[in-house]
Amino acid sequence: MQLLTHLPGSTPLVLDSPHSGTAYPENFRHACELAVLRSAEDTHVEKLYDFAPAMGVHWIEAHFPRSYLDANRNTTEMDVSMLDAPWPEPVETDPKIMSKVRLGKGLIWRTTDEGVPLYDRKLQVAEVQMRIARCWTPYHAAVAEAIDAAFRQHGYSIHINCHSMPAVASASATDFPGEEHADFVVGDRDGTTAAKPLSELVCSHLRERGYSVAYNHPYKGVELVRRHSSPDEHRHSIQLEINRKLYMDEATLEMTPGSEVLKATLRSLVEVLLKTDPRTL
């Protein structure tokens, strides 16, 4: 089973989609129904950006599902209560970082966004280590390789971490259950993963296209933008969340005609970013 796609590009722009995977491994052995589990996916996000590689944009896409292993979490964000034996690796202790783990959304998910348990068993330490080795490690290596290549060629890089979000926050998804989401959420971990003028440019462009845009709420960006950014060194990472109501039916997972309008907007954003040198902002 192919677990990720990495298409090298020639521009300073890197896009990655860590949560749109739909290839469910046989060794997952989840207890809940697949239809319930699929609500965890950023379904179709890879289709929304399918124009990007032809524009010279670096593209990385996970095929493994987010609920099997969440590549946007650090390997230390482990819920050790899920395991059949002591975890031999470091475990995060910062309460803020571990808030998602408490919600059941660590590196290995315990529950769905609605609180449905994924497993009726304890996970073996060895199988979690295998997931990290086969999924997390190569995915982060591919993102790092793409950003390094963009930086070497252009002297700077712009990394957009591509996600989608439900129209309304689920009960166990965030610290703000029931919140109605904006059309887009732009996150840079409070200005620590990208230069603020670059983030403001993204926000302004989307607002000019008629969309509602929130900045760093309720999603600030997590491990992929944290790990692979260094704005002072001209390596910028932004997490971009898209409201699913703009492009799909959340009940059936079918794409809607709105997806084409959205794709045109995303293409226009990519075109703007390809013309932007953050060093001049």
Rank of each mutant, 00 (worst) to 15 (best):
R134E: 14
V272D: 06
D148G: 10
E46L: 06
L206W: 01
K263M: 14
H58D: 13
L246R: 07
G258L: 09
H63V: 00
E41T: 12
K105W: 00
K275W: 00
V272Y: 03
D249P: 12
L83D: 05
D183A: 13
F176A: 11
Q129I: 08
P18F: 09
E33D: 15
P166T: 09
L266H: 07
D277K: 09
T93I: 07
Y68T: 01
K105L: 15
Q153R: 15
L253K: 09
P197D: 06
P95E: 04
S204P: 00
M55W: 03
E26Y: 09
K47M: 01
F184D: 02
C162F: 08
P88Y: 08
K100M: 07
Q2R: 13
P88T: 07
N161V: 10
Y119Q: 11
T11Q: 14
V272R: 14
E61T: 14
L37D: 10
E77I: 05
D16Q: 08
E200W: 01
E127T: 15
V80F: 03
T75K: 07
A214C: 01
I132H: 09
L83V: 06
R267V: 10
L198K: 07
R209K: 12
M130E: 15
K96D: 12
L246G: 06
F184M: 02
T265E: 02
R110S: 13
R134C: 09
M55E: 14
L48F: 04
L240T: 06
R226N: 09
S237E: 00
R131P: 08
